[in-house]
Nucleic acid binder design. Structure first.
Lengths: 209, 209
DNA sequence: TAAGTTGTGGACGATCCATTCCACAACTGA
DNA sequence: TCAGTTGTGGAATGGATCGTCCACAACTTA
């Protein structure tokens, strides 16, 4: 009925878990990432993690809950990468931070030789329409990324690297679209060098004062 | 063993088909569009079209072949829309044609209240990795769109509406990315007005002479 | 050590789904 | 009208897949 205390690392447990939860989630992520939600079987995950079904279901609930968890953690990681690249520096380097971030995203897609794309895009494409949890989490993630970008654009404007007359909100939305678009056309088969060029071109076109 | 002459409209058939092939493909497309490949059942399609399984399999082969057909026709249609909007006009209106096309794509996504997205993006996200046919067709489609955009950009450059020093190939790739990106962030939950703004912002930033 | 609690793994049940099969219908040419 | 051919619908098949169940293991507390 109610949620019991699961595994608080040090809680007194009757029998301790024999697996590392993080490692299991990593493996599960690999599976979902490679094959999508509908395309991966719980048996695959059991196999990949070495867990029996009982443990798997006991620890994570059903397939949907497990996916939600993996998806949500992915979204968190996506935002954290952006935060790591974008926040906390002088205005003088804001434009460089923006360039670095956009180029990094392009490079990631360019190097994705296995064409797995991004779990965020894949999950949203497959499930956002029917699954409110996925839809909500992906919308949240977009909003967070947009805010990060807007903040840096404003900083670059303050320092005079981007035209102060431009609307930072709109530029942020455009950059986000370019980043997500690169991932989309990359999955659709556009070649890696073109992907890198797209990032550079977008950055070149940002309005100067 | 070998392919028989299927239905040449006027061929001498033993028993004529009782269904309109185009209508069946439309219905099948609706299903795949709404639920993805793995998510739609052949029973759903049989139900939606009113066909029995025998007719369905007899006419279209298996689920994979049916999807490939639907997917390929969608890709053709996507390119045709672009051709209709972009080709065949004076250089003086090339920039207007480009603007019209990009705005139309944004508007389509903005109006997609059911959040179905684009079957091209959805299909590529779900299957491009494992299915060479889907991967190839989507890559072809991207290439065709890119060519159409590049041609119009060159035209606009000739007329002096876009800086002649810019590389039309790169600008075309960027515009394609923006168009596909709008569709991606739209599915991820970005609101309609922002989508329209993104299109406008991208067009505003095209380099003037 | 004994009782109680939670984790484990794999067999099992129930369902779902793609595909095939088949008896029959609708047509053609002779 | 009579074969012969192709289309039709739905029952049947075979395999896959989710989630449960259960006997047993590994702990904690008393």
């Amino acid at each position: 009925m109610d949620d019991r205390v699961k595994n608080g690392y040090g809680e007194a447990m009757a029998r301790p878990r024999a697996f590392d939860e993080r490692r299991v989630l990593e493996r599960a992520r690999e599976q979902f990432w490679a094959s999508g939600y509908a395309g991966t079987r719980m048996d695959d995950i059991a196999q990949a993690t070495g867990l029996g079904k009982g443990s798997l279901y006991g620890a994570f609930g059903d397939k949907g809950k497990l996916f939600h968890r993996v998806f949500s953690e992915w979204c968190t990681a996506v935002v954290e990468v952006a935060e790591g690249r974008l926040t906390g520096g002088p205005d003088a380097e804001a434009l460089a931070r923006l360039s670095g971030y956009v180029r990094l995203m392009a490079e990631n897609t360019a190097c994705d030789t296995e064409r797995r794309g991004c779990l965020l895009a894949k999950g949203a494409a497959e499930l956002a329409q029917q699954d409110p949890t996925v839809a909500g989490r992906s919308a949240e993630t977009m909003a967070a990324l947009m805010t990060l970008l807007r903040t840096e654009i404003s900083a670059a404007q303050r320092h005079g690297d981007i035209d102060g007359a431009a609307d930072p909100e709109r530029l942020a939305a455009l950059l986000l679209t370019v980043v997500r678009g690169i991932e989309a056309v990359g999955k659709a088969g556009v070649d890696p060098q073109t992907l890198r060029n797209i990032a550079d071109t977008a950055l070149d076109l940002l309005p100067r004062p």
